[in-house]
Write a protein that binds this DNA or RNA. Sequence first.
DNA 1: TCATTAAAGTTAT
DNA 2: ATAACTTTAATGA
Length: 198
Amino acid sequence: MIIKENLLYSAGATEEHYNPGDYIFREDTIPHFYYQIVTGVVKLNSYNDDGKEFIQNIFSDESTFGESMLLLAKPYPVNAVTISRCTVLKVSREQIFKLMDANPYILLSLCKVLSERSYEKNVLMRKITSKNAEERLMEILDILKQSHMNRDKFSFEIPYTRQQLGAFTGICVETVIRAIKRLEKNNVLMIRNRKIFY
DNA sequence: TCATTAAAGTTAT
DNA sequence: ATAACTTTAATGA
């Protein structure tokens, strides 16, 4: 959790409810709010000229998203779309700036979040330059697993569909499917009723 | 090696 | 039932 919920409420936070597929904000619009997920999963995506989706990031419970654009007051370069039912706290830009003024540690934790995001992007960019789809996929599986604790083989259920993995890596679904099957043959991962365990 | 297209199978709502 | 997701196969860059 980046900012305590009661603090957000004291800053006039409103609780927003979304159904899967709802847009929280759209590309090219100006940010006016700080968003923090209470429950649910949100993706940041964009579409290329062919209409192919590219997922930039996926966030779930207790994380904030779109904060860098809010601070900069630059138009969103991505859409925020809910993947599941979501409850999200929403605080106006003015109020969140007041909060940061009054609570230096909030500023600090925001800095930390931004640094983390930047670091993750660097790692991702570095890894995603791997040659073939199979290796690229393995790299992002590694990254995803790092966020959850258990290091054991096959202990981590990938919380994404093959389509989402494809949109996340820029690989088409069919290739994801084939690559994953090959990885299963090589004992890198395990498939149990269509769920991927890594 | 991989994207694309098409078509069919499976699961979730 | 319908939509969403997965799978297989053929083709071409």
